[in-house]
Design a protein around this nucleic acid. Sequence first.
DNA 1: AATGAATGAGGGTTCATTCAT
DNA 2: TATGAATGAACCCTCATTCAT
Lengths: 215, 215, 215, 215
Amino acid sequence: MSLPEAHVTEPRRSASARSRAETRRRLIQAGTALFARGGLHGVTSTQIARRAGVATGTFYLHFRDKQELFHAIVFEALADLRARQERAGAPHASGSLAELRARTEELLAFAEDNRDLIRVLFGRGGESATVGEEVLDEIVPGIERALERRRAEGVAPEDVHPAVAAQALAALLVRVIAWWIDHPEQATRQEVVATILRMHPSQLGRTGRPGSPAG
Amino acid sequence: MSLPEAHVTEPRRSASARSRAETRRRLIQAGTALFARGGLHGVTSTQIARRAGVATGTFYLHFRDKQELFHAIVFEALADLRARQERAGAPHASGSLAELRARTEELLAFAEDNRDLIRVLFGRGGESATVGEEVLDEIVPGIERALERRRAEGVAPEDVHPAVAAQALAALLVRVIAWWIDHPEQATRQEVVATILRMHPSQLGRTGRPGSPAG
Amino acid sequence: MSLPEAHVTEPRRSASARSRAETRRRLIQAGTALFARGGLHGVTSTQIARRAGVATGTFYLHFRDKQELFHAIVFEALADLRARQERAGAPHASGSLAELRARTEELLAFAEDNRDLIRVLFGRGGESATVGEEVLDEIVPGIERALERRRAEGVAPEDVHPAVAAQALAALLVRVIAWWIDHPEQATRQEVVATILRMHPSQLGRTGRPGSPAG
Amino acid sequence: MSLPEAHVTEPRRSASARSRAETRRRLIQAGTALFARGGLHGVTSTQIARRAGVATGTFYLHFRDKQELFHAIVFEALADLRARQERAGAPHASGSLAELRARTEELLAFAEDNRDLIRVLFGRGGESATVGEEVLDEIVPGIERALERRRAEGVAPEDVHPAVAAQALAALLVRVIAWWIDHPEQATRQEVVATILRMHPSQLGRTGRPGSPAG
DNA sequence: AATGAATGAGGGTTCATTCAT
DNA sequence: TATGAATGAACCCTCATTCAT
């Protein structure tokens, strides 16, 4: 429903809105890059603003404080990650090894596309602090329910406790990815994928090599 | 340092050294408790000193700065952990499942004996920062070499990459323990142990239940 | 009675529908309401603009700065007060007790009609600052000259110093009114009027009750 | 029970306590002088610290914030004023005109001894804000009770409402004093005293000149 | 060895005011 | 005239660390 007055003011609004959104985007980008190096406490709001090309005060026009920028960085990236995971898994049968492999590979691709972000959250010297935990809290329940389903289907072993395994898997993925991003020479992408799939709780019952194309 | 004078002053030192060691112990204890709640940046040296029952200046007679206290807390605990792991594994055949189980159970026991410490390093709101990473760097190489041996022996699957799996295992252990310490009602000790053993890279080749006595 | 921070923000009309005078009026109204709560330093120009239903920049199209708005609020009200005092005293003989009573009652009525304004100038937490002083400087000389006349006429006692009494009277009126506006249950209007008349410097020579109709 | 060690540490404690008290005293003095010119909002904590000859941080070692210093200035002075009023009234019969005169003269003397303080609280450009009000709240109830007694004794007229008159008197005193401190040439001390006594609610019933020795 | 008052650089945050649209 | 995003100087306050006692 477009009101006449909305029609009149829209060009102006959308113009300033575009500018506002652009400034916000730059602050997020600057924050990601700087947090990756210095962590939440190692970076000042003034540094972030300067890198974004705006004045210090502008920072607070867009975020209540540093913590909120941190939060925004993380959860906007998480939404992106989820969308990409969804797309990656879509072509495959739900719960299949093929789907799992596709999602794992997509996860590595995402990490490569967002190195700074990964470092912010889980990397060296990073102080993911509360936010890192919030991310795990966002991720873990989904994993846990999936594992419960797999176990009910008899695919996953009975003695793998879903809640425990969910914590384990989340931490495992996060750490392996953060490590590999910084040490890509230590293992090929295939090796990383294969090892993750091997250790994946839903695959523990399998005897064959999940890494094989026929898996 | 001139040894002769050390020799002369030693009797006097041992008297005051006892008191000095006691003060240091109390600072470490106070630091552990407070860091567990507020992280490295959420606690001031004055707070630590007050909780230890000493003056602010005394803090700096024992530690160069807060970071050093943090470091001391971690590495003294780590030394203790290593000793306990050693003792736990000693009665069993090297590389055996029995040894692995004993060490895992001892790890849980250690965590229960050092809840605050676990929280400092890996828990909610903790900002393990650089030190947490140092701990992993201390732990991971040992795990990696063990996994290499196991793979060479043909026990672990070939497609499990030792370096990757070492990162995965370290993160898995740390996270599961930190989580379980704060949510003991969500899984029994047995379930935690069983799940860890199941996911343990060195056990991935096994088909049976590693939790069973015959495993 | 003015509600607390209730969002009485007036519905926004299209810019063209608002005259400049109307916008100014709304800014003064919004400023009065907000200054009454937070004082000059406790309110931002953006808050005033928002409450007036205009953009921040619009504020500065009407007032050079916050101080000027404050000034405008006060002196427009003061002009209003003067006009009302003039009207209230007109029917009575100049210098008569009847005139004084009529003016005093009108003063209370004005205060009741402009509670927020009274609070801005003289009320709790108010930081009347320079402007409050300016108001007294406006009021006091008139009082002083009137007292001089009364003393010359032999009505007021000789030992009441006009300049001192003028300061005293101005402060007395301001304070009693500001207090009564916020504590109307503590004294009736009649009691307030009677007490003011009793203490009024021009009445100090009287022996009877100035509160009596025959006074 | 005085322990030996208490004996040892006492000199040290009292030494540092003396230094601490001295610093605090200097901050209060500096704050009084600066607040008198700039009001609460016109002075920075750094300015106060500099004038007191200490570092900025030291300010916050003694006062939580500027407001607290303001509060301390006022209430320590108020305690002093009360003691002096007590002493001034003591030689005279309670409720007598002589006592009232002595107290009034002492009040002027106090104001002359504490010009800056008077300006802080009630003077030009001062933003006594909440604290000024607190002072009145401290003073007014005592005045009110005294007036009630005087009225019950038949000394004060019935139509002078105690609560109203108490507000009036407090404001009157404060304003006359603040004004006279800055304009001593406009009225002699005797004239100020005489006018205050004339307007004093407890003296309104008198017909003679309260200023005369026989009053 | 212990004390604790003092230091002061620096960070987070605010907000009066401007200006391009 | 109105808009509202942007500015950036200025301020409050913290706290790691020092040092005289």
